[in-house]
Design a protein around this nucleic acid. Sequence first.
DNA 1: ACTATTTGACCGTT
DNA 2: AACGGTCAAATAGT
Length: 295
Amino acid sequence: MAALLTPAASSLSKLMAQGRESAAALEALLRGATPQDQEHGEVRELAAEILRCCDRALAALHGGGRKRGPGDAAAQTRPSKRTRASGGGGETAAAKRVEKKWTVEDGFIWRKYGQKEILHSKHPRLYFRCTYKDDSGCRATRQVQLSEDDPSLYVITYFGEHTCCHGDNAVLDCEDAKMQPFVINFGSAAAAAATSGGGSPPWLSSCSDDGDGQSETSRSSQAAGSPEEEDMEELGDKVTKIEPASSDHPSAAELSSSPDASCCSPPWDPLAACSDWDIFNEASFDYVISDYFEL
DNA sequence: ACTATTTGACCGTT
DNA sequence: AACGGTCAAATAGT
């Protein structure tokens, strides 16, 4: 599997390599900054993070993937024509036709296990659980739903902690996630909580479990989006995050399969983009590639 | 053949 | 009884 470098992947590799060089240069510059600029520490850290991200992305790209990630087979489209004769209820009015599969984005591989129309919600709620639930007994789950107020935002709620975070890249992501400097947090409480893991892009937030799946609530939204506390409610033991959805305002159906793809979509903040590299880990890698180069 | 996704059904909680 | 979360059979892609 080592030589799965498609032309697109090859291009991506070059891009990443280039990005890495840029990041290295940036870091070098920052190193030489005057003491006064030490407050740029965050920036330096960011530069370092960029390097790490690129390194991992490159490693993932060349090192080959690991196991099959969910959606690996359905990386792009999965015309789900489920015409069950018995009981299957067939397709509802909102026949779902998947276009992309993005079950990975925060270093963990999520597997969708359910979708539900929520009473007072315009959009269905999607239920994901850690793919390694069976392997490692990981109980981490998350719910993804389009924000009602702002369809351009995804509301992702995490439950439990990742017990599978013990050796795979996930671990790295957890560590790195804590260093993500560009997260926008709204609300003091949220910001505080964010430090344990919220200081990371939404798609990395799953690592935020502060030890034992305690509750945390943080938000992050698009740069343009003016914060409007809406989901600041603290709930049981979950972590709610709001991440920017694609500018295309994907439908609920799309959301079902690309809960996090949006974060890499068009409005691509260079900084955020770097963090996006995190999502390149293993399985997600291919998806991203196809999304960027084959569209 | 294997594995992930879909989606109706089932079950627990309120 | 209603709602929300999870299960599991069926389906589909590799």
